[in-house]
Structure formats: structure tokens, C-alpha cells
């Protein structure tokens, strides 16, 4: 891929230029929601339907 920017700092800068705050917020929210659901949700319906997955992923279960 393009080798235009070659430090972590410049990558951050570039991301800031490319993304609007809304896009960044939506992406973060999506990631957080998915991650939280898969790893940490304890609500019985959701939790029980992911029971096998949680064991397979070695995540904290009941």
C-alpha cells in the first residue's frame, strides 16, 4: 500500500483529516456495541443464545 506517511503520528494526523467526527463516532459506537455484546453482555436472552460461542471464545460466562 501507499507509503506516504511513515510514523504513527502522521497516520493519526491523516486519519483525522480523512474522517469527519460523525464518521469516527459512528465507527466507534459500532465497534463498542459489537465488542460489548460479544464479550460482556449478561442479559439472559442474549447471553444464553451466545452461550456456546462464549465458551468457544474462552470468554467469561455465567
Amino acid at each position: 500500500m501507499a507509503t506516504a506517511s511513515n510514523t504513527v503520528h502522521s497516520r493519526l494526523e491523516q486519519a483525522r483529516m480523512e474522517l469527519t467526527p460523525t464518521q469516527a463516532a459512528v465507527a466507534l459506537a459500532l465497534i463498542a456495541a459489537l465488542g460489548f455484546t460479544l464479550l460482556f453482555v449478561q442479559q439472559p436472552m442474549l447471553h444464553d443464545s451466545m452461550h456456546n460461542f462464549r465458551h468457544a471464545a474462552g470468554v467469561t460466562c455465567h
Binding site: H47, D48, S49, M50
Partner: peptide, 15 residues
């Protein structure tokens, strides 16, 4: 709280 087939299906999807 849910049936076995739901657990299986949702677990695959979660994977």
C-alpha cells in the same frame, strides 16, 4: 432462556 437451536444459530453467527 432460549432453545438449543437458537443457541447454536446465534453462536455460529457470533463466531
Amino acid at each position: 432462556a432460549v432453545s438449543m437451536s437458537v443457541t447454536n444459530g446465534v453462536s455460529i453467527l457470533s463466531g
